[in-house]
Design a protein around this nucleic acid. Structure first.
Length: 275
DNA sequence: CATATGTCCTGAGAGC
DNA sequence: TGCTCTCAGGACATAT
């Protein structure tokens, strides 16, 4: 998402709009839509950054526009047709052309925030958001999660402990690391933490390279409205009942942990004692 | 009815 | 007692 919006970095925001329909205004604009309009209009976009699963546009005022897509939010650049559930549109002048950054969100669970730089630190700093999974060293991964009694799969999704790991990539990384998703964090040995750290890096980097995962419902696509490619490399996610691609022996199982689906191979990822 | 890529909130209980 | 932390469960809203 961040890479897809790079063409508007350097541009000036000329207009900010939202849907007229009250129903489609049902996402969080923080602190409010009018505050967003006031803080954004006339500002230049100085940089586009990623923060966990959020997109951050840094403005020349030093304010930050944080787009948090949650389950079904996505950004589009210059969409070539009308889309339903558009929640926010920025018109941006870049090198004499007008470009459109659109935030669309079907379920409307997403949030857009405008924060000053000090509020940004309070809202998204350590304490509210753990270190990014691609920046944390292996020892710190164990230090942050290792004391818990919760299942490792559930801990990986705790954004206060670790940022940037979602349900798909947690399952894929645990499979590659050959760790059972229900294993309590405190039962994992140092070698398993090292494998998990390496697997998270491998899976997340590859997923970013392939521009994410477009599932069967097609809700997610890149800002240029192209499908991601990582869904073609899933080894466990949404493959319940199929033969494991890692060991060739197990059949992938689906279980539910903390109200979320988890997929794993019972042969590669052996069950922890007592479960 | 069950399912869905994420996060926040509440309340219970533990430990200090 | 009271603070802080962990943890389980639900809420949010819409579509297939």
């Amino acid at each position: 998402m961040r890479r897809g919006v790079l063409p508007i970095v350097g541009g000036r925001i000329e207009r900010v709009s939202r849907p007229r329909s009250r129903r489609l205004q049902a996402i969080d604009y923080r602190p409010s839509f009018t505050a967003l309009q006031r803080g954004l209009c006339g500002r230049r976009i100085a940089a586009a950054e990623r923060l966990g699963k959020r997109l951050v546009l840094v403005l020349d005022s030093d304010d930050r526009l944080v787009i948090e897509p949650r389950m079904t939010g996505r950004v589009m650049l210059d969409p070539d047709r009308e889309f339903s559930h558009v929640r926010l549109v920025l018109e941006v002048a870049v090198d004499g052309t007008r470009r459109y950054l659109v935030f669309r969100d079907v379920r409307g669970l997403g949030v857009v925030h405008l924060t000053g730089s000090s509020e940004f630190a309070a809202e998204f700093g350590r304490g509210r958001l753990g270190p990014d999974a691609l920046e944390i060293p292996a020892e710190q991964l164990q230090a942050r999660l290792g004391g818990r009694s919760t299942p490792i799969k559930v801990a990986l999704l705790d954004r206060k402990a670790l940022a940037g790991v979602g349900n798909i990539y947690a399952a894929e990384a645990l499979h590659r690391a050959k760790i059972h998703p229900a294993a309590p964090c405190c039962s994992l040995k140092p070698a398993q933490w090292r494998r998990l750290h390496a697997a998270l890096g491998l899976v997340l980097r590859r997923a970013i390279e392939l521009q994410g995962s477009t599932l069967r419902d097609g809700t997610y696509a890149t800002p240029e409205n192209r499908d991601g490619g990582y869904q073609r490399e899933f080894w466990v996610y949404q493959r319940a009942g199929e033969r494991c691609l890692q060991c060739g022996r197990g059949r992938i199982r689906r279980i539910v942990q903390a109200q979320r689906s988890t997929f794993y191979c019972p042969v590669c990822q052996r069950a922890p004692r007592g479960s």
